[in-house]
Amino acid sequence: MGILESLKTLLFGKHDVGGGKQDEKPGSAKAEKPADVSIGKKASIIKEPKEEKPVADKITVGHVHMSGCTGCLVSFADNYEGLLTILDKYADLVYCLTLADVRHIPEMDVALVEGSVCISDHLSVEEIIETRKNAKIVVALGGCACYGNITRFCRGGQQNQPQHESYLPIGDLIDVDVYIPGCAPTPQQIRNVCVMAYLLLKGNDEQKALAGAYLTPLMNLAKAGTQACGCDIMTQGINQGLCMGCGSCAAACPVRAITMQYGKPQIERDMCIKCGACYAQCPRSFFSFDVVNQYEGIMEAIDAAMEP
């Protein structure tokens, strides 16, 4: 099956996508009140898209959309055919805007939560609490979920919900297990976390140990709090006598708020959107010799895991 075909199937289920009356001009038919739909006998509109599962032991993953721009989800999808490999081999997508036809947050192994929580909207608060109840591992996906990011600057007044002015990173409301900072988080980082989460839950002892070591720094970020800013580079890096001027922060900044002046980061604090990418990318924020010394093996393993 070609990539396009499988994407279509993924998006629309295994039924004729292109069919139907396409030539009919809009407005040509007389408008009629639709007949009541009887839900008593559970008539299925879509022919059950029964998925064949070559791997029985997949983990279940859901994408929970809070107040975010969908950029994180797009970034996940930007793994392109890698996304299909992930869905084929490692994860069933049990809940996801657009990609999975499920209304209520189901039980799942991993919840990838995008966006911050608007506490002026009770449904959002209910959903984040439900997510925590139903997911074994909650991952804050992207700057908004981790640190508030651009939603930190909201003061309300926007159409069409001007009363929505208070947004909190999910960690201010529920316990979060793993952070993936960045705006948007990169496809490769999301992929790595997915593969490692799979190994942690389904792998052998050796794989579990490696995945645990890999995920530990991202778990520590989740424990460290819900505030991030370019200032962290100064307060946690330079002030602590740890900066050696490599420039990783400047490369990681999505809004180019960081430039290197005389070998040290210069942060335009008015430009900073508080996504947390700079500090998380800094080799002196966290660095595990146990993990990074094995970089060759780990990268080969991830590449092998992503073979279709």
Partner: peptide, 19 residues
Amino acid sequence: PCQMQALRKGQLYPIGLRD
């Protein structure tokens, strides 16, 4: 050496280093 550490961390944890 520290820049090589930054590079390898960046390859394993590409938080802001897409593609």
